[in-house]
Each structure stands twice: as C-alpha cells, then as structure tokens.
Write a protein that binds this DNA or RNA. Structure first.
Lengths: 352, 352
DNA sequence: CTGAAAGCGCTAACAA
DNA sequence: TTGTTAGCGCTTTCAG
C-alpha cells in the first residue's frame, strides 16, 4: 500500500542500485562531470534508459542547476515577441537546457512578480522580452543570475541586450517615403515610459530614428502620441486627417497601429495608397497576406531569440562583461505606400 | 565571504527566527493550513513581508505542491492556442497558482518530452492544448496528476476535456452557405492523425460536422485533404479551381487555410466573394481586420482557457470523475461570402 | 496550538 | 576513479 497509484518516481538511488554503483557516480554521469570511466558511463546510461529515469528538477534546484531558462514576454498576442520566443526554443533545442515561458503584462508590478516566480523556480538564466521595468531592478537581479534583455536600448552593467537597430529601421522607412515624394510624414508613437531615460524601449527608439531622419531631410517631424495598438493607430489617424493639411503618409510605430490607420482611412473614404500612404513596423504575419500587403520594416524575431540564447549561455558559462548585439532591420515595401498624389490630400501647400 | 554577491536567499528559517517561532509554524501559515492562532499568523505574515520572503519552489516540490500549472501548446503562432493560454493565465490570476508555458511542436515525441519536462518540475496540474499524442499515453500520466485537455473530442477516463462544439460550428457555416444559395461547397481539411479513433482533433470534428451538414441538405460532401496552413489552403484551392465544375464556395478548415484560398483565388483572377465565396474557422485576429473581413466561426479561446482552469482546480481539489465541457461556437459573417453568381464559375450544372 | 526532527532527491565536498 | 555523506529549503508526521 505504499504506492497505491503505482506511479512512484524512479530516483537516482534506483538507478545506482540497478547499475550497482553509487549515487554520486550516477550524478556525475548525468551532469557529464569529470572523473567517470567509459565503462561506468555505459553501465549507468544503460540503467537510466532501462528504468526510464529522469532527474527531479526540484531536487536539482536545491544544490545545482535546473537546466531551465525562463522567458518573460509581455503577452502572447504580440507576434514579434512570440517569434522571439520561438527563436529561443529552437536555439535551445540541441542544448541541455529547456525554456519555460511566462506572460507578464505591461505593468512593472506584474512583470516583477512573474520574474520573481521564475527566480523561485531557480531558473539558470532569464530572457526578458521588451521588459517594462526600471533598469535598476533588472540590474539587481542580474547580479544573481544571467540575464539577457531583448528590445531594451542602452548599456547595462550586469546583463546583455539584443536589439533591433530601430533607429535605422525608422530611417529606412522615412527615406523610402521621402524618395517616393512625401514631405508630410506623420509618425504614430506611444508615450515614453517613466523609466525610459538612459534606456529606451522600441517605440521610443523608432520615434527617435524617425525624428532624426526627418530632420536630416530638412522636414519637420510630426509625432502623434497615442498607443501602439489598433485603436491607438485609429485615433492617431483621425487626428491626422482632421488637420488643415493632413499628412500624405502615415508611418505607424507598429504594424498593429498601421491597421488602425488603414481602418480610419477607409472610414474617411481615403484610398490607400492613392490618397494616403501607410506604413508600419514589425512585419507581422497579418501584414504579409495579400489583402493587406503592408509596407513595413522587418526585424528578425527568430534571429533575435537565437542570439539572446547564445549570449545567455555564454553568461551561464561564466562571462561577466556585458555584451550588446544589434540585429539589422530591413525595409519591406508592399502595396500600402506609393508616391503622393497631386490631388486630394497632398503636399500641395509647397506651391504656395 | 560566505556571501560574496550579497544575494543569499531568505529562507523559511530566517522568517522563523525573525518571527521568533518555529519553521513548521511558518510553513503552516504559508500554506494556510489548520491549527494556527490569529496572532501567530499575524506575526509570521509580518516577518514574511518585512524580509520579502518567497518560498523556494524546488524545495516545496520535494514534499508538497509547487502551486504551478503547466500549459502545453503546439506553437506560439497559433492565435487560437495563445488565446486559450491567455484565458488560463487570467483565470489563474486570483488563485495561488501560477502557470508556466511550454511549446511542443506537432510531433508526439517532442510533445511527450516537453510534458515530461513539466512532470520533472512537479507541476500540480497540466493543461494540454490540442495534444497530438495517443490518448493512452495521456491517460497514463493523468493517473498521476490532474490533466485537462483542450480541443480533444472524446470521453477520457482520467482527465477532463474542454472542446468547442466544432461539429455544430461547421454546420452553422454550411447552413449559412446553403442559405445563400450554394450547393457546391468544398471543405479543406488535414489528414486524420494516426491516433484519432475514439478521440478526434479539431480538424476532424469540423470535417465530420461539414459532411453531416452537407448530407442533411442533400448535398455531396467534397473534402480536399491538404494541411491546415496557408500553403495547404492554397494547394486545396488550386485543386478545387482546376475541376471541371469548381465549387462556388470553399469552407476552409481554419482561417489560416482560408488565407491560402484567398491567395489562390487572387492568382486566378477570381473575385471574392463575387466569383467564389470563402470561409474559415477560428476567427483569428487577421480575419477581423477590414481589409480581410473573413466569414468564419468564432469559438471563445479565452473562455475555453478559463473553463479548463476551473476543471483543473476542481481536480486538484480532489475530483476524480471525468468531466467534459463544451463551448458553443457562433457564426461570424463578413465580406468573403455571398450568394453564388449565375455566371462565371457557378452551380449552373443543376440545369442539366 | 506549537515545535522538533525526519526526509524528499539531488549535488558536491571529501575520503578512500 | 569511485563511494560516502552532509546538506539544500521545504513539508509533514509526531510529541509536547
């Protein structure tokens, strides 16, 4: 009656007994540690296979590693973040580590508590995707375990970062629109988070890139600050269209916001791209389908995830100096942008 | 020098010392167990807060619960699955449990190994979203811990299920198309998985619903078996359009496949819905945007997730009889379906 | 109602 | 190269 369910786990003891060796020998084989003879390894491995033994992560966590990487993302509905997460999973595929994901929402409190939950589980390392937290807090936990942050621009002391060069990406888009003949190009963005000073998040980096690129073309930046959501894009576009001289192109800070812009345009009876050009940033799946064909900027989420794991594993192996990796964005021109028309809403004002 | 990093964790011992009580007292307060006086509770709680103590999940796992629910999904890029996962997270919000996610891919081997990794972490329960595994295997692990499967149709012995009534959903769509005047309605589906006999997955349930509904209208079912992906939908549509008498409507087994159908139609110069009606199933985000406006069937992923947690917590509390919960789908008619035209590809053949 | 102590399955010093 | 053993931080009997 000791085991009514018949599901007692095989332990390292069982393996040791079955192989006729000590538990520490098994432990060493398990971890690939030094000081095991080939025949010992074979015997133990055989016993492990025969018994179908798998180590208890919790027990391991008490002394050593859990061989687990914690991944924190804001939400599952963000295509870019999930692509990064996929890149992480794939990169971990042929290592001895596994990833567990956790969604945290966009509030610092929830994010911190979810990260703490991961610390409670003694993960060996952490990848934070677009963390919405004061950097000082991240620095603190990064003193205790390896951390890589994705989409956080800045130069941290205790952790690594992987970022898309979003300033460049924004510039590519502005250049594209200017080359097509646009001079009134609005940009939709989101409010700067309170903690963004020496560190900035994606939307702020994009905005900075946009502003700089506009100035370099001798144009006046026109930022409409709402939110990088469908609704936010819709509101921003309404504001833009209500102006006396509406922009001939709207460069949304994210594809999702661009969809809101498209909706607003449709509601006003404006044709895209004939009456107004619309562009986004992220190149999410929806943008690729033929009926949408949004001009946008692509940043490889998958590559970003893979790179973050490369850095994280280096840290787990002992590296302490911070590293930053920058991935290059590229422009994807599709069917929502074209030259401004000479009629309708346009940049006619220049002839005055 | 015992703590060079200054990051030694506070343990239950520290809390006990700070509160001037025993560790077992702290443990009881932690777990809300019986036999603690109010003043004991207050003292301990105060000490916990003061020290910022959080229990070590691994240590807990050695004896009791981890207060962790493992969620397994096929991939992050499936909007329905991530919505279920969100429903799960939200439902767990005001419980003492937390969820960790793991992606498993569509092969039984990987799925099993990811589930085992969760078992190694001693999760208290498991939610499997659209598991692609022999049910016998699930039954076995479900003997050892609470399990809920989502989108698996059948009557398990040891675990619960939450499913959308996909047969009904498919019927709603067929009824809609027939009411619009269509009589040649093709359905795209995927091969039946090897393990689907007494249990079936979503695509098979949808197909069954489609076939039954067609027959009930006196129509001949026309299933094109490819894969429920964009590419699969594209191939299926090409096959359909190549027929001597092409269907006037294509009901894809999933929205994502419907996008492939739309692409194939565009390539042939067929207008949707004038020349051919196209419908999907899932009501994913992309389908909702104005430029796409796909007619589809909605199943509440969020509600599904919430319900799965309700059932799982019941099981964790001790229920053993299996339960099944069915959520109701509803039709969402948008702009990709209409009456068949009398010209072009149509159901003209009837006049023969 | 409270506390002492055993032990969960591992890892890592240390001994042999 | 191998084995012995002391914990890791909790939970859970079992005494008091």
């Amino acid at each position: 009656m000791a085991d009514p369910e018949g599901t007692e786990r095989t332990t390292i003891q069982d393996v040791a007994a079955a192989a006729g060796v000590s538990v520490s020998a098994v432990s060493k084989v398990l971890r690939g540690a030094y000081g095991v003879s080939p025949q010992m390894r074979t015997r133990v491995t055989a016993a492990i296979d025969r018994l179908g033994y798998r180590p208890h992560t919790g027990a391991r966590a008490m002394r050593g590693r859990t061989y687990t990487v914690g991944v924190v993302l804001v939400e599952l509905t963000s295509p870019f973040q999930t692509e990064v997460a996929k890149g992480i999973s794939d990169a971990l595929e042929d290592t001895s580590y596994q990833d567990i994901l956790v969604t945290a929402g966009a509030t610092p409190e929830r994010q911190k508590s979810r990260i703490e939950a991961l610390l409670d589980r003694h993960v060996d390392g952490l990848v934070l995707i677009a963390p919405w937290i004061e950097v000082a807090w991240i620095e603190k936990i990064a003193q205790a375990l390896p951390v890589v942050a994705v989409a956080l621009h800045g130069t941290p002391r205790n952790f690594d970062t992987v970022v898309d060069d979003e300033r460049l990406g924004a510039q590519l888009m502005v250049d594209h629109l200017v080359a097509a003949g646009h001079r009134q190009i609005a940009h939709t963005s989101a409010p700067r988070a309170a903690f963004e000073d020496t560190f900035v998040l994606s939307h702020t980096a994009r905005r900075q890139g946009y502003e700089q690129a506009m100035r370099s073309h001798g144009l006046r930046p026109d930022v409409i600050e709402t939110w990088l959501s469908e609704e936010g894009g819709h509101q921003a576009a309404q504001q833009a269209f209500d102006r006396a001289r509406p922009p001939t192109a709207i460069f949304a800070g994210a594809d999702i916001a661009a969809f809101g812009v498209l909706r607003a345009a449709e509601e006003r009876g404006l044709r895209v791209p004939e009456d107004v050009s619309v562009a986004g940033y992220d190149n999410i799946y929806t943008s690729t389908i033929n009926r949408v064909s949004l001009t946008t900027v692509d940043q490889s989420g998958h590559g970003t995830g893979a790179e973050s794991i490369r850095l994280l594993l280096e840290r787990i192996e002992g590296r302490a100096q911070p590293r930053q990796f920058v991935v290059s964005p590229h422009l994807v021109t599709r069917r929502t942008t074209t030259a401004p028309s000479g009629t309708g809403i346009s940049n006619r004002g220049r002839t005055v």
